[in-house]
Amino acid sequence: MKNYLKLVNFEFNRIAILFSALLGITFVAQIVGVIVQSRSYLSMANEKIYDEMMSKAQFLEIFGQMSFLQIARSVWFMGPIAFCIAGVGFYIFLIWYRDWIGKNTFIYRLLMLPTTRLNIFYSKITNILIMTFGLVAFQLIIIPIEMLVMKVMVPNEFRRDMGVNEIVSSMPELGIIIPTSIVELILYYGAGMLVVSILFTAILMERSYRWKGIFAGLIYSAVAAVVLISPVFLHEFVLNGFFYPIELLILEIVMGLIVLALSVWLSGFLLKNKITV
């Protein structure tokens, strides 16, 4: 346990700079987005009201008040989020391969640590989780800051203030990243971690068997996917909708846990017996 925590900390320190860069990019791009969107709304208002002699009321009737949703739906806001998702997705692979590739042969040291090699697996998956939740938490912190910027720029009568909750619930794409309930948060990110564990297992297969391992990894991923969707498949096509939705959900959770356990066990086996530097 102690060694696991030390490894988690060590792994996090390795990614800290890249991680803060992601946070920085997100913050800067989104703040710029707030300014750009607010300005364009205001300049439109100015144009309509002063140049086209539209009354304020009339303008609000036609164009509506500005809400944070306009910003949140813009590429300035969603772009950095997509970039961060891509970054974490890329890092799922990099977190393993950088220990092998190039001048970096840190994997020697990792494998020779006097601790169970599964701790390497656990510490890496924990880091993916920390990064992901770190980004989510950071987003939750900067949204109020961005709202404040908008508040400063857009006068009261042109502005409709919304809560973070309201924004998240009106944007399904944001609702996946920041689900509205804790149950969903656990289920969504649990499913995410399940996928990461499957990918890790596939990566370790590749690291153990090289070319053959790539095929083994692909096959393992496909089998895992089939196992995971099998309850839904059976329910729909064989059992004629036998299960109630809640039963199907529980069944899926059980399947997910089985696949997760299998991935961890297999990764442990590969790290112990089959891995090659």
């Binding site: 900390n9 996090f12 320190n13 800290a16 920390i130 938490a137 950071f138 939750l140 948060l185």
Partner: peptide, 13 residues
């Protein structure tokens, strides 16, 4: 660093 980020995550979320 890791302590800070974990505290941040727990508090914010």
């Amino acid at each position: 660093k890791s302590t800070a980020i974990i505290v941040l995550i727990v508090l914010t979320i």
